[in-house]
Structures are given as structure tokens and as C-alpha cells.
């Protein structure tokens, strides 16, 4: 009886594994991306996933001598699905952030991008003076706090848009809780609403804004460019906490790309400026 039960159990396990367990293919690293965050990852009109992170993933996999598969995943469920082992890594413009580090781990960062406010070119906010060009959050000095407070004064009574569950949203709720906030499922939808005039400003990354700024002249950027603190410590590969070996492999591959200048070249190609780490 026990033997029969065991055999049924094994057969079922094999069936389950055979049917569903793509995870059993040990050599393939499955990398999730969102496909709606230009120029990190997006879809061209032919329906292909393209972008900085798609190129970067291909290069990293070559250097790790691994087979890679890119999986498309909506931003909303991207962390739960990593934990559930739907894929093994996330490369979706995701910043290293304390609250995320409680549930997943990160590789070293591969780009670090400042965050700022985007407004319509015909908005009264254009030309807002800022005493500082750039601010590093985290330990905010009195001078930096003054700049943030000034910005808060400018935005008082207005509505700011962010993408939901992002570091940008975290910044707004931590530093400017008084400002009306609208959260969008994608940044593209936020920009659509900025152009439609439903929000007065969008708080998002310079790298996302750059191609939009280059394409047309209907959007402008105001205020200081911010990094650090709730905005995280740079964009990195998101991994499961227990997969330390995979993290080391990613780190080593990123290091070699920094060392021979390929990462810098790739960043410049996609972002128009080198936002890769120097070491």
C-alpha cells in the first residue's frame, strides 16, 4: 500500500514538474521586465521588447555563460512573482530600496538616475528657480531641506503624478505628504495625463524623461535633481534573497562591463548620457 502511494506521489510530482516547472531547467536564467519604461525596457511597433536593460541582460548573460529568457511582467506583481519563483531576476528599472530589501535582494547597481519634476512647457511652473542643482537625500542638510521646502511651496495646491509602488511615490509620501498625489499603473499613462492637463507635474526619472524631452518641446523639467534616500541607491538586478550565488555571478559580470567600458557605452547609447557607475 505504502509503495503504491509513494509511486503515485512520485508520478504526480513528475507530472507536476514536467507540466509546470520551467524552474527545473537549471541553466536558464529567467529575467523579468516590464516593457513599459522607456528607454530601460519597452516595446517597439513590431512588438519586440527592446531597451537598455534588454541589451544589458543579453550582454550579462553572455558574460555569465548562461542561457537567458526575458519574461514580460506587469509592474504590479513583479516582486511577488519573483518570490514565487516565476522567474529568477528582475531587470525593470528597479532601484535598490530598503523596503524592497526586506523581501528581495539586489545586485550592485548598474545605473543611477536622478529624479525630478516634469511639467508642461506652457505651465506657469516653468522657470521655477531652485537654489541647488542636485540633492542627495538620505541625510538631508538644512540647505537641502530648504530647497525641498521651496519646491513644496511651489507645488502647494497642485496635483503631482507618480507611478504606483515606485521610489518616486515613496519620496512624495515621505517628503511632500501635503501635496495631492495621483498614482498610475504605468509611467506612460502618467505622461498621457500630464499632457492632458489632469496633473500639474509628474515626478519621475530623468532617464525616462530624456527621450520625451528630445522628441518634442511640450514637456519641461523643473526643480532640483534628486537621488538617494527614499529614491534608492541606483537601479540594479532584483533577486531572491537565498540566491546568493546568482547575485555573485551578476555582480561579477557587471564589474567586468564597468571595467572594460561596455556598460558606459551602452548607457550612453540608450540614455544619451553616461549614468553608469565608474567603479
Amino acid at each position: 500500500m505504502v509503495a503504491v502511494m509513494t509511486r503515485i506521489g512520485v508520478a504526480a510530482a513528475v507530472a507536476v514538474a514536467g507540466l509546470w516547472a520551467a524552474g527545473a531547467q537549471a541553466d536558464t536564467i529567467r529575467i523579468a521586465t516590464e516593457g513599459a519604461y522607456k528607454p530601460y525596457n519597452f516595446k517597439d511597433a513590431a512588438g519586440n521588447l527592446v531597451g537598455f536593460e534588454i541589451d544589458l541582460a543579453a550582454e550579462l548573460c553572455t558574460r555569465m555563460e548562461a542561457e537567458c529568457e526575458i519574461v514580460e511582467q506587469a509592474w504590479d506583481g513583479i516582486i511577488p512573482s519573483l518570490i514565487a519563483k516565476k522567474y529568477d531576476a528582475i531587470m525593470a528599472g528597479m532601484s535598490i530600496k530598503a523596503s524592497r530589501e526586506e523581501v528581495i535582494s539586489f545586485s550592485r547597481y548598474y545605473v543611477n538616475t536622478p529624479i525630478t519634476f516634469a511639467v508642461l512647457s506652457d505651465s506657469a511652473l516653468v522657470g521655477t528657480e531652485s537654489a541647488m542643482e542636485a540633492i542627495t537625500l538620505g541625510e538631508v542638510s538644512a540647505e537641502e531641506q530648504a530647497v525641498i521646502d521651496a519646491m513644496k511651496g511651489v507645488l502647494n495646491g497642485l496635483t503631482v503624478g507618480v507611478q504606483t509602488s515606485t521610489t518616486h511615490e515613496a519620496f512624495m509620501t515621505e517628503f511632500m505628504p501635503e501635496i495631492d498625489l495621483k498614482s498610475y499603473d504605468t509611467m506612460d499613462n502618467m505622461i498621457l495625463d500630464l499632457e492632458a492637463g489632469r496633473i500639474d507635474a509628474g515626478y519621475t526619472s530623468m532617464t525616462y524623461l530624456r527621450p520625451i524631452l528630445e522628441q518634442g518641446d511640450d514637456i519641461a523639467v523643473i526643480g532640483p535633481k534628486m537621488t538617494g534616500g527614499p529614491l534608492g541607491r541606483g537601479v540594479a538586478v532584483g533577486l531572491r534573497q537565498e540566491d546568493t550565488e546568482l547575485r555573485d555571478r551578476f555582480n561579477a559580470a557587471i564589474d567586468t562591463m564597468i571595467a572594460d567600458g561596455t556598460l558606459s557605452a551602452m548607457a550612453t547609447e540608450w540614455f544619451g548620457t553616461d549614468i553608469s557607475p565608474t567603479e
Binding site: G9, V10, A12, A13, V16, A17, W20, A21, A22, G23, A24, A84, K85, K86
Partner: peptide, 15 residues
């Protein structure tokens, strides 16, 4: 996954 782990000790992702 909980079921697979509990019954068969299978600890992979059930895609």
C-alpha cells in the same frame, strides 16, 4: 507551491 512542497518535497516554481 505549498501543496507541492508539503506533499512531494518539490521546491521549484510551479509556473
Amino acid at each position: 507551491q505549498t501543496i507541492a512542497l508539503g506533499l512531494f518535497g518539490y521546491d521549484g516554481y510551479i509556473d
